[in-house]
Design a protein around this nucleic acid. Structure first.
Length: 332
RNA sequence: CUCCAGGAUAGGUUC
């Protein structure tokens, strides 16, 4: 019976979920570990409904109980689907099993689930009730506040967690910066910048650095954004695009296009997002020639069919540039 | 009781 259960684990690990299921169904004794492993396997390949169905069957198995691992996997699926109803049920069951308060991972995934579902009050209550609030559970709540436009609350959380002696990490700062962007309070963002600088996050980590660039751009502080960007040790298409959008959205499309040129010169291949954003900049200032070059590049790379947004933006660019016949051609 | 698997984080057109 051990052998069969372990074989199920191995099959899930190598992605043979269908074979795993066939074997799993023939087992006489199914361990908690193999139930959970099947559930995780289905979630990983996006078949959430199968996972939930399996969980129902698991509850009917008198010999096993779901573990913290089981609840983490299922609650994470609820977060992705924003399925609050199922999340609430799972929360009740995790509480009944003692997982919710015994297992810190279940605690933080509960905070995340409520946050992602927009039930910020519930998220806050779960966090406050946790025996151990760590950087991840705090960050999950901050992310929730930021995502749903409650910048003030997000920033207060950052302060509260620091008062509790918990050090923020890159993820915490990134979420807090996102909150600042939505708040229109550049001072708070600058405050965070200073702290990140102290911890060496602002130029060494590309995600953190890009989030800073984005925050400054959203406040229209392009000089600050450029300064952070210039200090970045690594740049990728995302960081370049963030800057390009920053210039474009602040009425500086010419500068945006200069950034695009520098990005190419830097040897960073533009992805579809970078191309779309640069096309928008072209459209804004009627730069049909440069837009046309980007168009040619898109055709050469065969990207046109990949994403409807590219076509939309090409039309925008040609229309704004007055080349209606080219716009029509793209449209057709 | 021990061993293996589990948690939060960056950019675009429309919104």
């Amino acid at each position: 019976r051990l052998l069969g259960n372990n074989l199920v684990l191995m099959m899930v690990e190598v992605g043979r979920i269908f074979d795993a299921q066939k074997l799993f169904d023939r087992l006489l004794y199914r361990s908690e570990r193999s139930w959970t492993s099947m559930i995780v396997g289905y979630i990983e390949c996006g078949k959430m409904q199968y996972a939930f169905t399996l969980y129902m069957r698991m509850q009917l198995d008198a010999f096993v109980h779901p573990s913290g691992h089981t609840f983490v996997a299922l609650l994470k699926a609820c977060s992705k689907l924003k399925d609050l109803k199922r999340g609430l049920t799972l929360h009740a069951e995790a509480t009944r099993m003692g997982s919710a308060e015994r297992d810190p991972f279940v605690g933080s995934v509960l905070v995340d689930m409520y946050s992602k579902c927009g039930s910020l009050k519930a998220a806050r209550e779960v966090l406050d009730g946790l025996p151990l609030r760590d950087v991840v559970s705090w960050t999950a709540l901050i992310a929730g506040y930021a995502e749903h436009g409650h910048g003030k609350e997000a920033f207060e959380c950052l302060k509260q967690m620091q008062q509790e002696g918990i050090a923020p990490n890159i993820a915490t700062f990134v979420c807090s910066l996102k909150a600042c962007s939505g708040m229109g309070d550049a001072c708070k963002g600058q405050e965070i910048h200073v702290e990140m600088e102290r911890m060496g996050f602002s130029n060494r980590d590309i995600v953190a650095g890009t989030a800073l660039v984005d925050m400054y751009c959203k406040h229209g502080l392009l000089t600050n954004a450029q300064e952070v960007f210039d200090k970045l040790l690594l740049r990728n298409a995302v960081s370049w695009t963030t800057l390009i959008v920053g210039y474009t959205e602040n009425g500086c499309s010419e500068e945006a296009l200069e950034c695009f040129e520098r990005m190419l010169a830097d040897g960073v291949p533009p992805d579809t997002v970078a191309l779309v954003c640069s096309l928008k900049a072209c459209g804004n200032i009627g730069a049909v020639n440069r837009g046309g070059e980007i168009h040619a590049y898109i055709e050469r790379q065969g990207l046109f069919e990949k994403d409807i947004v590219i076509g939309n933006m090409l039309v925008y660019m040609y229309v704004k540039g007055g080349s209606l016949w080219k716009a029509q051609e793209v449209f057709d």
